[in-house]
């Protein structure tokens, strides 16, 4: 428990212009609590960069750098190389950050390079499933049937017709020492994974599910609830992997039908209009069931 003064001293401070109920800022706060002040962060262009560093303001009390959209991992590689060259790497965590677009789409190449070279960098992907900063356009991590402004639903479409790219498996394919998937809805689990990542030398990938109020279209108070429902339905399996082996999964305590998750979000409301939509919900249920089976979530 922090006093009022102590809350003002947090490494990621209030005063940023993130949306009310933003699960990304919530996650950053949780992550910084573990990483501590001996951290240097890089940031891809995106929501977090824009809402945390509008000059002359900055919410960061650690050294932080934003360069471009697709090079967060490469800039972090450079930071790590410079620290090594100066003999100052010991005790300093290099954190690279990006949204799902900056990570899995435009940033995938530089991320793959960073993984393959096994830089001592923790890469965190804040996954809200679309290009939220530019106004909710589809990304490679947009889930199946979600409405975005570039995968709209309409007479001929139920929204995004491709499944979410399985980014953590791409990370694991690089045989990096640690890959983990976490959720803003489970702070202890998230922080445990950050702590573990911090203790490992080499490239680490952490993907965090961060519900987005304006992009997913729900009431701000449901950010945590939705993050938890994503896990409890099986749509967002949380796990840890070392190299290419999954070493732990977060079990679902009580399986929830996907409908419970979908119905709270405007981006899926087109699925609740008619029978054709119901059939689509069945398809999403199938995705969840397959996840449960594959990861052994129950």
């Amino acid at each position: 428990m922090l006093t009022k003064e102590e809350t003002h001293n947090e490494l990621f401070t209030m005063g940023h212009t993130g949306c009310s109920g933003c699960a990304q800022s919530m996650s950053v706060k949780m992550i910084m609590e573990i990483l501590g002040k001996n951290t240097i962060a890089t940031n891809a262009t995106g929501c977090l960069e824009v809402f945390s560093t509008r000059w002359p303001e900055s919410s960061w009390k650690i050294p932080w750098i934003h360069s471009l959209f697709e090079n967060s991992a490469a800039v972090a590689s450079g930071v790590e190389a410079a620290l090594k060259a100066m003999g100052k790497k010991d005790g300093i965590t290099v954190l690279a950050q990006g949204g799902d677009g900056g990570t899995a789409d435009i940033g995938l190449q530089s991320l793959s390079g960073m993984f393959e070279r096994n830089h001592d960098v923790l890469y965190v992907c804040y996954d809200n499933g679309a290009y939220m900063n530019t106004g909710y356009q589809r990304s490679g991590l947009t889930p199946f049937d979600a409405y975005t402004t570039t995968s709209p639903s309409g007479k001929e479409s139920f929204g995004n017709q491709r499944p979410k790219k399985y980014m953590p498996e791409i990370a694991m394919a690089h045989r990096i020492p640690y890959t983990a998937v976490a959720s803003a809805g489970y702070p202890m689990d998230l922080q445990k994974k950050v702590k573990k990542a911090k203790s490992i030398t080499g490239a680490k990938y952490l993907q965090v599910d961060v519900p987005c109020v304006p992009g997913w279209k729900y009431e701000p108070k449901y950010s945590v609830k939705l993050a938890q429902l994503a896990v409890q339905t099986g749509l967002y399996p949380l796990f840890e992997a070392e190299y290419d082996k999954i070493i732990s999964v977060k079990k679902i305590s009580k399986k929830v039908p996907v409908e419970e998750y979908l119905k709270l979000q405007g981006r899926f409301k087109h699925l609740f209009k008619d029978d054709a939509g119901r059939a689509e919900i069945e398809k999403i249920q199938k995705i969840a069931d397959e996840n449960i089976e594959r990861f052994g979530l129950i």
């Binding site: 750098i65 471009l68 697709e70 590689s77 450079g78 930071v79 190389a81 410079a82």
Partner: peptide, 28 residues
């Protein structure tokens, strides 16, 4: 030559690596 030589996957990353390193105050 005592330096970190980072052979990257693209020119975009080559420039980004030296950007990040230079921002740390080292010659790149």
């Amino acid at each position: 030559l005592k330096a970190e030589f980072i052979m990257v996957e693209s020119e975009h990353s080559a420039a980004s690596v030296v950007l990040g390193a230079s921002a740390c105050g080292v010659r790149t």
